[in-house]
Nucleic acid binder design. Structure first.
Lengths: 196, 196
DNA sequence: TGATTTATTGGACAGTGTTCAGTATCACGC
DNA sequence: GCGTGATACTGAACACTGTCCAATAAATCA
């Protein structure tokens, strides 16, 4: 067949990413299939490769969307909160991971070939989330120490992430930990408190 | 063919795990192949399934071996160190992840089917590493607080793990973090210091 | 109306995990 | 020595995967 034109190229890309994201949420990275995405949007596997160029690029697009949804969740969660904003941010981290288990895990399950860097769009998505958290951390610091917000935020994000990973992958279950979010919150409080 | 008997069943299992572990180190979880393991030990794919029962069980056996090597590395690294033992432990964490990138990542890339629990042997391997670290954390705490060592260690392990993950998967590169291990060490110092 | 560009297809290829009927070899009882 | 099981091992078959690309249909342009 030839051009079908019910969708522009950008629309088609958008539709494929949306369907791919749903598929990822349902089956997870290990059982994700590009053919299945094609099937779901009513196109053939070849079209997926025409639009995205490679399997990796498709995954990257889907993970990028997950990051955008994650940021969205974080923003909404902080929108009408006055107190304990850092704690709410941690809660949002865990909530998103729990609610979107598979899509969230896919962000970390997928690895680009070595010596390959993610595209600028994707990196921007990561930084966008980071920037939101930096602002919160800065707010929690005394004015004299606010220039330390960025390195501190990197470390605190890693800290929360570690707790979230162990909660999601069963490590904490093996070790008998039952309040991962609380533990993460303690570490964050200590780190911020010591500069106060 | 029939029974070949150059190896007992246990020997064969051992050989397969060793070869599988090497294969994993070379190509990583995404490109790991059970057929390739079979080829490397000079048996057919069927034998792999006879010995391990399933792909998942093979991966679990290989990851179990990685955990054992990791524990070994940690023990050796702490063997003749008097000062800064916690810091050395963190260094050992990062070292092992760096030196065995693929095998280390496979521990977290692989996920058992939902509602499935890893076999007791595997759990014991995880706890063995945990126990080593608990002893170090307890030693670093004042006598009156040593009963808090276990929950604290779970949290600190997660903290260090988070930093290591972000260092290995490129997140820290995107965010401009250049001393992940130092950042992790700071968080650990704070948490331990506050109880001192 | 051609000629050309573009979008889309789906078969072909090499690889995967998984199963299992078939076969070769051993150990043992007679 | 000779059956008779039990055991170890094989590899073809199946349904799937990512990847590529010659063929084709439709839209656009000259």
């Amino acid at each position: 067949m030839g051009r079908r034109s019910d969708h522009s190229r950008d629309e088609l890309r958008e539709i494929a990413v949306a369907a791919g994201h749903r598929h990822m949420e349902e089956v997870g990275f290990a059982h994700f299939s590009a053919r299945e995405v094609a099937k779901r949007i009513g196109y053939s596997i070849g079209t997926i490769y025409n639009v995205f160029g490679s399997y990796d690029a498709l995954i990257l697009a889907i993970n990028g969307r997950t990051l955008a949804l994650w940021r969205d969740h974080l923003v909404r969660r902080l929108a009408d909160v006055q107190q304990d904003r850092l704690r709410q941010a941690i809660a949002a981290y865990f909530e998103f991971a729990t609610t979107h288990r598979h899509a969230w895990a896919a962000i970390y399950d997928f690895r680009l070939p070595e010596d390959t860097v993610p595209p600028e769009r994707y990196q921007a998505e990561v930084r966008a989330i980071f920037d939101i958290v930096v602002a919160e951390v800065r707010e929690a610091l005394p004015p004299a120490r606010q220039d330390e917000a960025e390195p501190l935020t990197r470390s605190l994000l890693a800290t929360v992430h570690g707790h979230c990973v162990f909660a999601m992958n069963g490590t904490f279950a093996i070790l008998g930990e039952k309040s991962p979010a609380d533990a993460a919150w303690q570490r964050v409080q200590e780190a911020v408190g010591i500069l106060t």
